[in-house]
């Protein structure tokens, strides 16, 4: 996708049905602008994201994957933060094994009304991704 304002990294976001996806909905309802190259898939809980999905997204051509985690508010698992951290670690190992920069995966907790933090994360992550040398395998 070409855009008039230069290179816009393509980001796949994994959000969570009960918490972070609400924040992303709210960003849209509030007409907060973020790049249309950001796309979201909602799952029940960030601790259930399979690291292989993350790796697949990158090898499919996404510049980065952002896991919008439940954080300490997760209603399922009190150790959701640690678990999601492990998912990210495992995903980064998969990427490293293919010579891909592990910085292409990022996570942060997003509460259900954290629309502004979401948009800021997308801006910052987008900037960081744009600064990376092009994706491994591309």
């Amino acid at each position: 996708m070409t855009a008039e304002h230069g290179y816009r990294p393509k980001i796949l976001v994994f959000s969570t049905n009960a918490i972070s996806d609400m924040a992303i909905d709210l960003a849209g309802s509030s007409h907060m602008d973020y790049s249309p190259t950001v796309q979201t898939i909602a799952v029940p809980c960030s601790s259930g994201v399979n690291p292989r999905w993350v790796a697949r997204a990158i090898t499919d051509g996404f510049d980065g994957v952002f896991i919008a985690a439940d954080g300490p508010e997760c209603s399922y698992l009190s150790d959701c933060v640690d678990r999601t951290g492990r998912v990210v670690q495992q995903a980064q190992e998969l990427l490293r094994a293919q010579g891909i920069d592990p910085a292409r995966v990022k996570t942060a907790a997003l509460c259900s009304v954290c629309s502004e933090p979401f948009v800021n994360h997308m801006k910052q992550f987008g900037k960081a991704l744009a600064a990376l040398p092009s994706a491994g395998g591309k």
Binding site: L12, R56, A57, D60, G137
Partner: peptide, 26 residues
């Protein structure tokens, strides 16, 4: 896994064409 991987593929920007994608990805 099947659903998620096919969703990711379907919304991919570039698109694969990478036959023989490494087996570790699924």
């Amino acid at each position: 896994n099947e659903q998620m991987l096919s969703m990711i593929d379907a919304m991919s920007p570039g698109i694969p064409g990478k036959a023989g994608a490494p087996s570790l990805i699924g």
